[in-house]
């Protein structure tokens, strides 16, 4: 493939939205209230919309007739390069919100930079996505504050979720080979530079929510290299079920 690094770079962005969208989609019809149900479904819908734009572009780059669905649904587990954070399961609403919040703060900062990419397609996709993501960030931040400040029970649950998910945050700022290669062409975002600002923003919202900022310095990594937690395989068996069971059909 001529543009292999660009292809890989796009997957590095899009896989996060794909897997998080799938997680949010699991909740449809099961939310704590009708309003949160609609909001979570809507976030899922936004993320899948974004995924389609990225994968359609990636499919074009391969030039071998691959489709967005081939890329989304027919790769092997080790070929998905999303961060570990987004594949974490919906243990309860606090985990769902915690995962969303920790990703949204990053996602927004990332898209703000991607808009400046020299790749006009990526920059256009970023400009469209950032509007949606600014809403996601507001939604998840507001819920962090509600649950942190709400009742003793909600604070304990929210704190537990933040503590549990914290270990997956550092990976967001790891550079992959494709990232590094694309920086030279002015296409990619140097995510390592977003780290300081990210933790500042996250801390400020957690403090506002009267939650403690975890002090642990032990972080997990591997998603960007395709080494995932055990949760991803199950998610993929749902995601890929139809394409695997009924290969080469139009839907």
């Amino acid at each position: 493939m001529k543009n292999e690094n660009l292809y890989k770079y796009i997957l590095g962005i899009a896989d996060n939205s794909l897997i998080l969208g799938q997680r949010m989609g699991e909740l449809c019809g099961h939310g704590p209230s009708l309003e949160t149900d609609i909001a979570c479904t809507n976030i899922s819908l936004d993320l899948f919309g974004q995924v389609r734009s990225y994968y359609q572009y990636a499919a074009k780059i391969t030039g071998d007739g691959r489709t967005e669905d081939d890329i989304a649904m027919l790769r092997k587990e080790r070929e998905y390069v999303n961060v570990l954070l987004v594949e974490q399961p919906n243990r309860d609403f606090a985990y769902t919100i915690g995962r969303q919040f920790l990703f949204d703060v990053y996602h927004y900062m990332f898209l703000a930079q991607l808009q400046k990419s020299h790749d006009v397609t990526l920059s256009a996709i970023a400009a469209k996505c950032i509007k949606e993501v600014s809403y996601h960030k507001r939604f998840s931040s507001d819920w962090i504050k509600r649950l942190g400040d709400g009742t003793q029970e909600s604070r304990a649950k929210m704190q537990d979720a933040i503590n549990g998910l914290w270990t997956y945050t550092d990976e967001l700022f790891h550079m992959t080979d494709a990232d590094t290669a694309m920086i030279k062409e002015g296409i990619s975002v140097d995510v390592s530079t977003l780290k300081e600002n990210y933790y500042q923003q996250v801390k400020s919202i957690l403090e506002e929510a009267i939650l403690e900022v975890p002090e642990s310095k032990w972080f997990q990594k591997g998603g960007k290299q395709g080494i995932h937690t055990e949760h991803l395989g199950y998610l993929l068996s749902d995601l890929q079920y139809m394409q695997r069971t009924y290969p080469n059909m139009e839907w």
Partner: peptide, 23 residues
């Protein structure tokens, strides 16, 4: 069927539909 929709296009349409019902 949201998590198992056969294509991204169908998944998006199904999500939107179920969301309409919630609405």
């Amino acid at each position: 069927w949201i998590t198992r929709a056969p294509s991204l296009r169908r998944k998006v349409a199904l999500l939107a539909k179920v969301q309409d019902e919630a609405g």
